[in-house]
Design a protein around this nucleic acid. Structure first.
Length: 428
RNA sequence: GGAGAGUUGGUAGAGCGGUUGAAUACACCAGUCUUGAAAACUGGCAUGGUGCAAGCCAUCUGGGGUUCGAAUCCCUAACUCUCCGCCA
Protein backbone atom coordinates (compact mmCIF):
# COMPACT_ATOMS: atom_id res chain seq x y z
CA UNK A 1 0.00 0.00 0.00
CA UNK A 2 1.46 3.34 -1.01
CA UNK A 3 1.19 6.56 0.95
CA UNK A 4 -2.08 8.26 0.07
CA UNK A 5 -0.22 11.56 0.21
CA UNK A 6 1.51 10.68 -3.03
CA UNK A 7 -1.91 10.47 -4.65
CA UNK A 8 -2.95 13.80 -3.20
CA UNK A 9 0.13 15.71 -4.20
CA UNK A 10 1.59 13.79 -7.10
CA UNK A 11 -0.89 11.48 -8.80
CA UNK A 12 1.18 11.63 -11.97
CA UNK A 13 3.92 9.56 -10.34
CA UNK A 14 1.39 6.89 -9.51
CA UNK A 15 -0.01 6.86 -13.05
CA UNK A 16 3.44 6.65 -14.56
CA UNK A 17 4.22 3.75 -12.28
CA UNK A 18 1.05 1.89 -13.25
CA UNK A 19 1.96 2.30 -16.90
CA UNK A 20 5.47 1.04 -16.31
CA UNK A 21 3.91 -2.08 -14.89
CA UNK A 22 1.62 -2.54 -17.88
CA UNK A 23 -1.47 -2.36 -15.69
CA UNK A 24 -3.27 0.41 -17.56
CA UNK A 25 -6.60 -1.03 -16.49
CA UNK A 26 -5.81 0.31 -13.02
CA UNK A 27 -5.32 3.91 -14.16
CA UNK A 28 -8.88 4.98 -13.28
CA UNK A 29 -8.24 3.97 -9.67
CA UNK A 30 -6.03 7.01 -9.23
CA UNK A 31 -8.75 9.55 -9.92
CA UNK A 32 -11.29 7.49 -8.05
CA UNK A 33 -9.19 7.48 -4.91
CA UNK A 34 -8.44 11.19 -5.20
CA UNK A 35 -12.16 11.88 -5.56
CA UNK A 36 -13.23 9.57 -2.74
CA UNK A 37 -10.51 10.94 -0.50
CA UNK A 38 -11.69 14.50 -1.06
CA UNK A 39 -15.23 13.53 -0.16
CA UNK A 40 -14.04 11.58 2.82
CA UNK A 41 -12.03 14.44 4.19
CA UNK A 42 -14.80 16.98 3.98
CA UNK A 43 -17.14 14.48 5.60
CA UNK A 44 -14.60 13.93 8.30
CA UNK A 45 -14.36 17.63 8.92
CA UNK A 46 -18.13 17.84 9.29
CA UNK A 47 -18.16 14.88 11.65
CA UNK A 48 -15.33 16.33 13.71
CA UNK A 49 -17.19 19.62 14.05
CA UNK A 50 -20.34 17.84 15.15
CA UNK A 51 -18.42 15.83 17.69
CA UNK A 52 -16.65 18.95 18.94
CA UNK A 53 -20.07 20.55 19.45
CA UNK A 54 -21.36 17.47 21.21
CA UNK A 55 -18.33 17.22 23.48
CA UNK A 56 -18.75 20.85 24.44
CA UNK A 57 -22.45 20.49 25.24
CA UNK A 58 -21.87 17.27 27.13
CA UNK A 59 -19.36 18.87 29.43
CA UNK A 60 -21.82 21.72 29.97
CA UNK A 61 -24.38 19.15 31.01
CA UNK A 62 -21.88 17.79 33.44
CA UNK A 63 -21.39 21.22 34.96
CA UNK A 64 -25.14 21.84 35.20
CA UNK A 65 -25.68 18.47 36.84
CA UNK A 66 -23.11 19.29 39.46
CA UNK A 67 -24.87 22.56 40.13
CA UNK A 68 -28.13 20.59 40.26
CA UNK A 69 -29.68 22.63 37.46
CA UNK A 70 -31.48 19.61 36.06
CA UNK A 71 -34.01 21.46 33.90
CA UNK A 72 -31.35 23.28 31.95
CA UNK A 73 -29.39 20.09 31.59
CA UNK A 74 -32.38 18.34 30.09
CA UNK A 75 -32.78 21.12 27.57
CA UNK A 76 -29.23 20.70 26.36
CA UNK A 77 -29.60 16.93 26.30
CA UNK A 78 -32.40 17.31 23.79
CA UNK A 79 -30.23 19.59 21.72
CA UNK A 80 -27.43 17.04 21.55
CA UNK A 81 -29.84 14.30 20.65
CA UNK A 82 -31.13 16.29 17.71
CA UNK A 83 -27.69 16.23 16.08
CA UNK A 84 -27.07 12.58 16.82
CA UNK A 85 -28.76 11.28 13.69
CA UNK A 86 -26.72 13.43 11.37
CA UNK A 87 -23.54 12.30 13.09
CA UNK A 88 -24.52 8.66 12.86
CA UNK A 89 -25.22 9.12 9.17
CA UNK A 90 -21.85 10.73 8.60
CA UNK A 91 -20.08 7.99 10.46
CA UNK A 92 -21.78 5.36 8.37
CA UNK A 93 -20.93 7.10 5.12
CA UNK A 94 -17.37 7.47 6.27
CA UNK A 95 -17.01 3.79 7.06
CA UNK A 96 -18.11 2.87 3.58
CA UNK A 97 -15.89 5.53 2.02
CA UNK A 98 -12.92 4.25 4.01
CA UNK A 99 -13.60 0.76 2.71
CA UNK A 100 -13.87 1.94 -0.87
CA UNK A 101 -10.62 3.87 -0.60
CA UNK A 102 -8.79 1.03 1.05
CA UNK A 103 -10.01 -1.45 -1.53
CA UNK A 104 -8.56 0.69 -4.29
CA UNK A 105 -5.36 1.51 -2.42
CA UNK A 106 -4.67 -2.20 -2.09
CA UNK A 107 -4.84 -2.53 -5.87
CA UNK A 108 -2.58 0.37 -6.69
CA UNK A 109 0.91 -1.06 -7.10
CA UNK A 110 3.85 0.12 -5.06
CA UNK A 111 6.15 2.65 -6.71
CA UNK A 112 8.96 0.65 -8.25
CA UNK A 113 12.60 1.62 -7.97
CA UNK A 114 14.12 3.61 -10.83
CA UNK A 115 16.58 0.82 -11.48
CA UNK A 116 13.90 -1.78 -12.24
CA UNK A 117 14.08 -2.77 -15.91
CA UNK A 118 10.91 -2.06 -17.84
CA UNK A 119 9.28 -5.11 -19.35
CA UNK A 120 5.95 -6.78 -19.83
CA UNK A 121 6.42 -10.20 -18.26
CA UNK A 122 8.94 -12.71 -17.02
CA UNK A 123 10.41 -13.15 -20.50
CA UNK A 124 11.90 -9.68 -20.11
CA UNK A 125 13.59 -10.27 -16.79
CA UNK A 126 17.23 -9.34 -16.82
CA UNK A 127 20.17 -11.46 -15.83
CA UNK A 128 22.37 -9.39 -13.56
CA UNK A 129 24.92 -11.89 -12.39
CA UNK A 130 26.09 -15.38 -13.12
CA UNK A 131 28.33 -17.59 -11.05
CA UNK A 132 29.87 -20.91 -11.93
CA UNK A 133 29.96 -22.71 -15.23
CA UNK A 134 26.59 -24.07 -16.30
CA UNK A 135 28.12 -27.41 -17.28
CA UNK A 136 26.42 -30.25 -19.05
CA UNK A 137 28.27 -33.41 -18.09
CA UNK A 138 29.13 -36.10 -20.57
CA UNK A 139 26.79 -38.57 -18.90
CA UNK A 140 23.05 -38.22 -18.65
CA UNK A 141 21.57 -36.58 -15.59
CA UNK A 142 18.37 -38.40 -14.66
CA UNK A 143 15.19 -36.78 -13.41
CA UNK A 144 15.70 -35.85 -9.73
CA UNK A 145 13.05 -38.33 -8.56
CA UNK A 146 15.03 -41.10 -10.23
CA UNK A 147 18.25 -39.98 -8.62
CA UNK A 148 16.51 -39.99 -5.27
CA UNK A 149 15.04 -43.39 -5.87
CA UNK A 150 18.43 -44.90 -6.62
CA UNK A 151 19.63 -43.49 -3.32
CA UNK A 152 16.63 -44.97 -1.56
CA UNK A 153 15.61 -41.47 -0.55
CA UNK A 154 12.11 -40.88 -1.85
CA UNK A 155 8.78 -42.62 -1.28
CA UNK A 156 5.81 -40.90 -2.83
CA UNK A 157 3.69 -44.00 -2.96
CA UNK A 158 3.37 -44.05 0.81
CA UNK A 159 2.82 -40.30 1.09
CA UNK A 160 0.10 -40.70 -1.52
CA UNK A 161 -1.62 -43.12 0.80
CA UNK A 162 -1.22 -41.04 3.94
CA UNK A 163 -1.58 -37.52 2.61
CA UNK A 164 -2.33 -37.51 -1.09
CA UNK A 165 -0.62 -35.85 -3.97
CA UNK A 166 1.95 -33.16 -3.28
CA UNK A 167 3.59 -34.82 -0.30
CA UNK A 168 6.61 -37.06 0.04
CA UNK A 169 8.65 -39.18 2.39
CA UNK A 170 12.32 -38.24 2.22
CA UNK A 171 14.57 -40.85 3.78
CA UNK A 172 18.14 -41.72 4.58
CA UNK A 173 21.04 -39.63 3.31
CA UNK A 174 18.94 -37.40 1.04
CA UNK A 175 16.76 -36.51 4.03
CA UNK A 176 19.87 -35.86 6.04
CA UNK A 177 21.17 -33.78 3.18
CA UNK A 178 18.14 -31.52 3.41
CA UNK A 179 18.72 -30.98 7.11
CA UNK A 180 22.41 -30.46 6.45
CA UNK A 181 21.80 -27.80 3.82
CA UNK A 182 19.34 -25.98 6.01
CA UNK A 183 21.68 -26.12 8.98
CA UNK A 184 24.55 -24.90 6.86
CA UNK A 185 22.42 -22.07 5.50
CA UNK A 186 21.31 -21.17 9.02
CA UNK A 187 24.88 -21.04 10.32
CA UNK A 188 26.01 -19.05 7.32
CA UNK A 189 23.39 -16.40 8.12
CA UNK A 190 24.24 -16.43 11.81
CA UNK A 191 27.85 -15.76 10.82
CA UNK A 192 26.62 -12.77 8.84
CA UNK A 193 25.16 -11.37 12.04
CA UNK A 194 21.56 -12.43 11.56
CA UNK A 195 19.56 -13.57 14.58
CA UNK A 196 18.24 -17.08 14.31
CA UNK A 197 14.54 -17.53 15.00
CA UNK A 198 12.01 -20.33 14.99
CA UNK A 199 8.66 -18.60 14.54
CA UNK A 200 5.06 -19.77 14.89
CA UNK A 201 4.04 -22.00 11.98
CA UNK A 202 0.48 -20.77 12.15
CA UNK A 203 -0.69 -17.18 12.08
CA UNK A 204 -4.00 -15.34 12.35
CA UNK A 205 -5.93 -13.88 9.48
CA UNK A 206 -5.22 -10.27 10.42
CA UNK A 207 -1.50 -10.93 10.05
CA UNK A 208 -2.07 -12.71 6.75
CA UNK A 209 -4.19 -9.82 5.45
CA UNK A 210 -1.33 -7.51 6.22
CA UNK A 211 0.94 -9.33 3.83
CA UNK A 212 -1.31 -10.54 1.02
CA UNK A 213 -4.69 -10.09 -0.59
CA UNK A 214 -7.63 -12.31 0.21
CA UNK A 215 -7.42 -13.98 -3.19
CA UNK A 216 -3.75 -14.77 -2.72
CA UNK A 217 -4.41 -16.08 0.75
CA UNK A 218 -7.18 -18.31 -0.45
CA UNK A 219 -5.01 -19.75 -3.19
CA UNK A 220 -2.00 -20.33 -1.00
CA UNK A 221 -2.81 -20.93 2.62
CA UNK A 222 -4.31 -23.83 4.49
CA UNK A 223 -6.87 -22.80 7.08
CA UNK A 224 -7.24 -24.57 10.40
CA UNK A 225 -10.79 -25.73 10.83
CA UNK A 226 -12.76 -23.86 13.46
CA UNK A 227 -9.96 -21.48 14.37
CA UNK A 228 -8.71 -18.19 13.09
CA UNK A 229 -5.38 -19.73 12.12
CA UNK A 230 -3.54 -20.45 8.90
CA UNK A 231 -0.51 -22.63 8.21
CA UNK A 232 2.27 -20.38 6.99
CA UNK A 233 3.40 -20.57 3.37
CA UNK A 234 6.66 -18.89 4.33
CA UNK A 235 8.15 -17.81 7.62
CA UNK A 236 8.43 -14.30 6.20
CA UNK A 237 4.83 -13.84 7.27
CA UNK A 238 5.38 -14.84 10.90
CA UNK A 239 8.61 -12.91 10.98
CA UNK A 240 7.27 -9.65 9.61
CA UNK A 241 4.06 -10.16 11.58
CA UNK A 242 6.21 -10.26 14.71
CA UNK A 243 6.55 -6.49 14.39
CA UNK A 244 2.92 -5.68 13.57
CA UNK A 245 1.74 -2.43 15.17
CA UNK A 246 5.06 -1.90 16.88
CA UNK A 247 7.04 1.29 17.17
CA UNK A 248 10.69 0.31 17.07
CA UNK A 249 13.57 2.28 18.49
CA UNK A 250 15.69 3.66 15.74
CA UNK A 251 18.85 2.37 17.37
CA UNK A 252 17.48 -1.19 17.18
CA UNK A 253 17.62 -0.94 13.39
CA UNK A 254 18.49 -2.73 11.28
CA UNK A 255 16.74 -5.82 12.53
CA UNK A 256 18.25 -8.77 10.70
CA UNK A 257 16.84 -12.22 11.30
CA UNK A 258 17.03 -15.65 9.77
CA UNK A 259 14.21 -18.05 10.41
CA UNK A 260 13.51 -21.70 9.89
CA UNK A 261 10.08 -23.14 9.21
CA UNK A 262 8.17 -25.70 7.29
CA UNK A 263 6.08 -24.08 4.56
CA UNK A 264 2.64 -25.20 3.48
CA UNK A 265 1.15 -24.23 0.16
CA UNK A 266 -2.06 -25.20 -1.52
CA UNK A 267 -0.65 -24.39 -4.95
CA UNK A 268 -4.13 -23.70 -6.24
CA UNK A 269 -3.96 -22.18 -9.68
CA UNK A 270 -0.27 -22.95 -10.07
CA UNK A 271 1.01 -25.12 -12.87
CA UNK A 272 -0.01 -28.21 -11.02
CA UNK A 273 1.83 -30.62 -8.84
CA UNK A 274 4.26 -33.09 -10.31
CA UNK A 275 3.32 -36.72 -10.41
CA UNK A 276 6.69 -37.99 -9.37
CA UNK A 277 9.05 -35.28 -8.30
CA UNK A 278 9.32 -32.79 -5.48
CA UNK A 279 9.62 -29.60 -7.52
CA UNK A 280 6.18 -28.29 -6.63
CA UNK A 281 4.73 -29.70 -3.43
CA UNK A 282 2.37 -28.82 -0.60
CA UNK A 283 5.05 -28.93 2.05
CA UNK A 284 8.72 -28.06 2.26
CA UNK A 285 11.17 -26.47 4.66
CA UNK A 286 12.85 -23.16 4.30
CA UNK A 287 15.52 -21.01 5.82
CA UNK A 288 14.50 -17.40 5.32
CA UNK A 289 16.02 -14.00 6.00
CA UNK A 290 14.26 -10.75 6.73
CA UNK A 291 15.52 -7.23 7.33
CA UNK A 292 13.76 -4.20 8.78
CA UNK A 293 15.80 -1.07 8.26
CA UNK A 294 15.84 2.67 7.74
CA UNK A 295 14.58 3.70 4.30
CA UNK A 296 17.97 4.96 3.16
CA UNK A 297 19.60 1.61 3.91
CA UNK A 298 17.21 -0.72 2.17
CA UNK A 299 18.89 -0.83 -1.23
CA UNK A 300 22.21 -1.71 0.31
CA UNK A 301 20.58 -4.55 2.26
CA UNK A 302 18.73 -5.75 -0.79
CA UNK A 303 21.98 -6.28 -2.65
CA UNK A 304 23.67 -7.92 0.30
CA UNK A 305 20.77 -10.27 0.84
CA UNK A 306 20.59 -11.87 -2.57
CA UNK A 307 24.34 -12.15 -2.72
CA UNK A 308 24.26 -14.21 0.49
CA UNK A 309 22.02 -16.76 -1.21
CA UNK A 310 24.30 -16.82 -4.21
CA UNK A 311 27.32 -17.50 -2.04
CA UNK A 312 25.60 -20.33 -0.20
CA UNK A 313 24.73 -22.04 -3.46
CA UNK A 314 28.24 -21.50 -4.73
CA UNK A 315 29.54 -23.24 -1.64
CA UNK A 316 27.21 -26.13 -2.40
CA UNK A 317 28.83 -26.38 -5.78
CA UNK A 318 25.70 -25.28 -7.62
CA UNK A 319 26.02 -22.78 -10.49
CA UNK A 320 23.54 -19.94 -10.11
CA UNK A 321 22.48 -16.76 -11.78
CA UNK A 322 20.52 -13.79 -10.52
CA UNK A 323 17.63 -12.58 -12.57
CA UNK A 324 16.07 -9.23 -11.91
CA UNK A 325 12.29 -9.00 -12.17
CA UNK A 326 11.20 -6.50 -14.78
CA UNK A 327 8.43 -4.00 -14.03
CA UNK A 328 5.63 -6.14 -15.43
CA UNK A 329 6.66 -9.25 -13.53
CA UNK A 330 7.07 -7.49 -10.20
CA UNK A 331 4.37 -8.19 -7.60
CA UNK A 332 2.34 -5.13 -6.67
CA UNK A 333 3.75 -4.74 -3.18
CA UNK A 334 7.38 -4.84 -4.29
CA UNK A 335 9.78 -2.03 -5.05
CA UNK A 336 12.42 -4.29 -6.55
CA UNK A 337 12.95 -8.00 -6.63
CA UNK A 338 15.18 -10.66 -8.09
CA UNK A 339 15.20 -14.42 -8.31
CA UNK A 340 18.22 -16.54 -7.62
CA UNK A 341 18.15 -19.44 -10.05
CA UNK A 342 20.10 -22.66 -9.97
CA UNK A 343 21.46 -24.42 -13.01
CA UNK A 344 19.81 -27.66 -14.00
CA UNK A 345 22.24 -29.74 -16.05
CA UNK A 346 19.42 -32.11 -16.84
CA UNK A 347 17.05 -29.52 -18.29
CA UNK A 348 19.97 -27.35 -19.37
CA UNK A 349 18.34 -24.26 -18.03
CA UNK A 350 18.05 -22.35 -14.80
CA UNK A 351 15.19 -22.74 -12.31
CA UNK A 352 14.11 -20.63 -9.36
CA UNK A 353 15.49 -21.51 -5.94
CA UNK A 354 14.95 -18.22 -4.14
CA UNK A 355 13.50 -14.79 -4.36
CA UNK A 356 14.74 -11.55 -2.82
CA UNK A 357 12.55 -8.48 -2.47
CA UNK A 358 12.47 -5.05 -1.01
CA UNK A 359 8.98 -3.80 -0.32
CA UNK A 360 9.92 -0.27 0.60
CA UNK A 361 7.56 0.96 3.28
CA UNK A 362 4.44 -0.58 1.71
CA UNK A 363 4.33 -3.70 3.85
CA UNK A 364 5.24 -1.72 6.98
CA UNK A 365 2.41 0.71 6.25
CA UNK A 366 -0.09 -2.14 5.94
CA UNK A 367 1.12 -3.74 9.16
CA UNK A 368 1.84 -0.57 11.12
CA UNK A 369 5.55 -1.17 11.66
CA UNK A 370 7.23 2.09 12.53
CA UNK A 371 10.41 3.42 14.03
CA UNK A 372 10.76 6.35 16.36
CA UNK A 373 13.10 8.80 14.67
CA UNK A 374 14.35 12.20 15.71
CA UNK A 375 11.80 13.96 13.55
CA UNK A 376 8.85 11.78 14.43
CA UNK A 377 7.92 8.26 13.53
CA UNK A 378 8.28 6.74 10.13
CA UNK A 379 7.52 3.44 8.44
CA UNK A 380 10.53 1.17 8.20
CA UNK A 381 11.53 -0.64 5.03
CA UNK A 382 11.06 -4.38 4.96
CA UNK A 383 12.97 -6.92 2.90
CA UNK A 384 12.90 -10.66 2.62
CA UNK A 385 14.88 -13.31 0.85
CA UNK A 386 15.04 -17.06 0.63
CA UNK A 387 18.20 -18.41 2.15
CA UNK A 388 17.48 -21.97 1.10
CA UNK A 389 14.32 -23.92 0.37
CA UNK A 390 14.59 -27.64 1.00
CA UNK A 391 13.08 -29.27 -2.06
CA UNK A 392 14.38 -26.87 -4.69
CA UNK A 393 17.84 -26.90 -3.15
CA UNK A 394 17.83 -30.68 -3.00
CA UNK A 395 16.99 -30.96 -6.70
CA UNK A 396 19.72 -28.51 -7.64
CA UNK A 397 22.18 -30.20 -5.34
CA UNK A 398 21.57 -33.71 -6.63
CA UNK A 399 21.75 -32.73 -10.28
CA UNK A 400 24.95 -30.75 -9.89
CA UNK A 401 26.81 -33.08 -7.55
CA UNK A 402 25.88 -36.36 -9.20
CA UNK A 403 28.80 -38.48 -10.38
CA UNK A 404 28.77 -40.79 -13.34
CA UNK A 405 28.76 -43.85 -11.08
CA UNK A 406 25.56 -42.69 -9.40
CA UNK A 407 27.15 -41.45 -6.20
CA UNK A 408 26.70 -37.90 -4.91
CA UNK A 409 29.68 -35.76 -3.94
CA UNK A 410 29.34 -33.70 -0.79
CA UNK A 411 31.11 -30.36 -0.89
CA UNK A 412 33.42 -29.35 1.93
CA UNK A 413 30.95 -26.90 3.46
CA UNK A 414 28.34 -29.57 4.06
CA UNK A 415 30.49 -32.38 5.40
CA UNK A 416 30.38 -31.37 9.05
CA UNK A 417 26.60 -31.63 8.83
CA UNK A 418 26.76 -35.05 7.15
CA UNK A 419 28.82 -36.79 9.76
CA UNK A 420 32.03 -36.11 7.85
CA UNK A 421 30.92 -37.99 4.73
CA UNK A 422 32.30 -36.82 1.41
CA UNK A 423 30.07 -38.94 -0.74
CA UNK A 424 26.60 -40.49 -0.73
CA UNK A 425 26.57 -44.04 -2.06
CA UNK A 426 23.73 -45.29 -4.19
CA UNK A 427 21.57 -48.05 -2.79
CA UNK A 428 20.24 -49.68 -5.96
C1' G B 1 -10.49 -28.79 28.81
C1' G B 2 -12.59 -26.59 33.91
C1' A B 3 -12.50 -22.20 37.65
C1' G B 4 -11.02 -17.39 38.77
C1' A B 5 -8.25 -12.59 38.00
C1' G B 6 -6.53 -9.16 34.61
C1' U B 7 -5.13 -6.13 29.76
C1' U B 8 -4.22 1.91 30.84
C1' G B 9 1.41 6.10 27.72
C1' G B 10 8.71 3.65 26.60
C1' U B 11 8.17 0.76 31.52
C1' A B 12 5.74 0.22 36.28
C1' G B 13 1.16 1.76 38.01
C1' A B 14 -3.41 5.13 39.79
C1' G B 15 -8.13 6.02 37.95
C1' C B 16 -13.86 2.35 37.96
C1' G B 17 -19.82 7.47 34.35
C1' G B 18 -18.74 14.35 33.79
C1' U B 19 -12.12 19.89 32.51
C1' U B 20 -8.98 12.37 32.74
C1' G B 21 -5.41 12.33 26.96
C1' A B 22 -5.10 10.25 31.58
C1' A B 23 -2.15 11.00 38.75
C1' U B 24 2.50 9.20 40.37
C1' A B 25 7.26 6.84 39.81
C1' C B 26 11.08 5.19 36.70
C1' A B 27 13.27 5.59 31.98
C1' C B 28 14.42 9.13 28.10
C1' C B 29 15.78 14.25 26.01
C1' A B 30 17.37 19.46 26.91
C1' G B 31 19.16 23.09 30.39
C1' U B 32 21.37 24.91 35.32
C1' C B 33 25.28 23.51 38.63
C1' U B 34 30.36 20.84 38.06
C1' U B 35 37.28 20.70 35.64
C1' G B 36 34.33 16.17 33.98
C1' A B 37 30.81 12.69 35.86
C1' A B 38 27.20 11.58 39.61
C1' A B 39 23.60 13.95 42.65
C1' A B 40 20.25 17.96 42.91
C1' C B 41 17.15 21.45 40.48
C1' U B 42 14.29 23.40 35.97
C1' G B 43 11.79 22.28 31.54
C1' G B 44 10.20 18.69 27.83
C1' C B 45 8.37 13.81 26.80
C1' A B 46 1.95 8.85 23.53
C1' U B 47 -0.06 8.03 18.50
C1' G B 48 -2.87 9.14 14.25
C1' G B 49 -5.96 12.63 11.47
C1' U B 50 -7.02 17.74 10.07
C1' G B 51 -5.62 22.87 9.77
C1' C B 52 -0.99 28.34 7.86
C1' A B 53 -1.85 28.45 12.95
C1' A B 54 -4.51 28.61 17.53
C1' G B 55 -7.13 24.65 17.76
C1' C B 56 -10.32 20.64 16.82
C1' C B 57 -11.30 15.14 16.22
C1' A B 58 -10.04 10.07 17.34
C1' U B 59 -7.40 6.44 20.30
C1' C B 60 -6.80 3.66 27.73
C1' U B 61 -6.16 -4.71 23.78
C1' G B 62 -9.82 -5.22 19.10
C1' G B 63 -15.14 -5.12 17.76
C1' G B 64 -20.28 -4.03 19.19
C1' G B 65 -23.77 -1.76 22.74
C1' U B 66 -25.99 1.53 26.87
C1' U B 67 -25.70 7.07 27.76
C1' C B 68 -26.38 13.93 26.60
C1' G B 69 -21.42 12.07 28.01
C1' A B 70 -17.39 5.86 28.65
C1' A B 71 -10.59 4.30 30.34
C1' U B 72 -14.77 3.70 33.84
C1' C B 73 -21.22 0.03 32.79
C1' C B 74 -22.92 -4.31 29.39
C1' C B 75 -21.88 -8.00 25.33
C1' U B 76 -18.08 -10.24 22.33
C1' A B 77 -13.17 -11.70 20.42
C1' A B 78 -7.98 -12.01 21.39
C1' C B 79 -4.20 -12.19 24.80
C1' U B 80 -1.86 -12.56 29.88
C1' C B 81 -1.68 -14.50 34.88
C1' U B 82 -3.16 -18.06 39.01
C1' C B 83 -5.30 -22.85 40.35
C1' C B 84 -7.02 -27.80 38.60
C1' G B 85 -6.89 -31.53 34.65
C1' C B 86 -4.19 -33.50 30.33
C1' C B 87 0.36 -33.89 27.76
C1' A B 88 5.53 -34.05 24.04
Amino acid sequence: MIDINILRTNPEIVRENIKKKYQDAKLPLVDEVVELDKKNRSLKQEGDDLRAQRNKLSSEIGNLMREKKFDEAEKIKAEVKAEADRLAQIEEEQTSLDDEIKKRMMLIPNIIDESVPIGKDDSENVEIQKFGEPKVPAFEIPYHADILEKLGGLDKESSGRTSGNGFYYLMGDPARLVSAMISYARDYMIDKGFTYCIPPFMIRSDVVNGVMSFAEMDAMMYKIEGEDLFLIGTSEHSMIGKFKDQILKEKELPITMTSYSPCFRKEVGAHGLEERGIYRVHQFEKQEMIVLCKPEESMEWYNKMWSYTVEIFRNLNIPVRTLECCSGDLADLKVKSCDVEAWSPRQQKYFEVGSCSTLGDAQARRLGIRAKGENGNYYVHTLNNTVLASTRALIAFLENNLNEDGTISIPEALRPYMGGKSVIEKKI
